[in-house]
Amino acid sequence: MATPVLTPAALHRCLADETRLTLTLLLCAESELCVCEMTQALAAPQPKISRHLAYLRRAGLLRGRRQGAWIYYRLEPTLPTWVSIILEASRDAAPVEVTAACRRLGDAGAASQRQAACHAESTTAPFPFIPGDSA
């Protein structure tokens, strides 16, 4: 599948939403993040984060890779130079939300520790199975 051509208007639509801006700038600071790391960093529910990540991926700003049950995202490596300049300038402006997300991510430890913790959490069922219950 070919990467969509990212236009200035499309980029600004992506970054106009606070959640998408924070996710994108967080990925500027980290080479790759798992969805569960981003939910922790933004203190937001997983469906919300996944919806915004899908939007950014469809726009051609992010690339995802599946590893087992988890999806890891990073900035699209073939982004045009003008996009990288805008993202770097936006990152340097460090909106409060991005600074807080980076701090929460750092407080959770190194990438390997964060991933081990969130992967361990996801293996435990949130609700006990009760025989006879139907879904």
Rank of each mutant, 00 (worst) to 15 (best):
H52D: 15
T22P: 03
L42P: 00
L105E: 08
V98P: 04
H52T: 04
T123Q: 14
P128F: 03
E30C: 14
L79M: 05
A94Y: 10
A44Y: 00
S134G: 06
I130C: 11
R104G: 04
P126A: 13
E121R: 14
T19M: 01
R74Q: 15
A101T: 08
L79V: 10
A59D: 09
L26I: 06
A41R: 02
Q40W: 11
C34P: 00
A54Y: 07
L53C: 06
F129E: 11
A29C: 12
I71K: 01
G109V: 03
D17N: 15
P95V: 11
G68T: 04
W70L: 06
A108W: 05
A116L: 11
W82M: 11
T24C: 12
C34K: 04
A9N: 12
Q67V: 11
E18S: 13
L33C: 14
T81R: 12
I86K: 11
R13F: 02
T39P: 01
L15H: 08
L53M: 07
A69K: 02
L6M: 08
A100R: 15
S90N: 09
P131L: 05
K48E: 10
V5L: 13
R63G: 02
C102N: 15
A125Y: 09
P8M: 08
W70A: 13
T19G: 04
A69D: 13
R20D: 00
R74N: 08
A120N: 11
T3G: 10
D92A: 15
P95K: 09
L62I: 02
P131F: 01
C28G: 09
Y72M: 02
R13T: 12
G106P: 02
L42E: 00
L23S: 02
Q115S: 04
E37C: 05
G60T: 01
G132E: 02
L25G: 04
M1E: 12
A111H: 11
G64C: 07
L87P: 00
A54H: 12
H119K: 08
S90C: 11
A125R: 14
Q115V: 03
L56P: 03
F129T: 11
R104S: 06
L56I: 07
A41D: 01
A54V: 06
A44L: 14
A108T: 08
R91E: 12
A101S: 06
I71S: 01
S122C: 10
E18C: 04
A94L: 15
A101Y: 03
T39E: 09
G109H: 03
L87T: 07
L15Q: 07
P80I: 02
W82F: 09
L23C: 01
R51A: 07
R57L: 05
I85N: 09
E30S: 13
A110P: 02
L75K: 05
E88C: 10
T22K: 03
L25Y: 09
C102F: 07
D92F: 11
A10C: 02
L87M: 13
A110G: 01
A111G: 05
A93W: 09
A108S: 12
D92K: 14
L87V: 11
L23I: 06
R58M: 05
L26N: 00
H12N: 15
P4F: 10
F127D: 09
P80M: 03
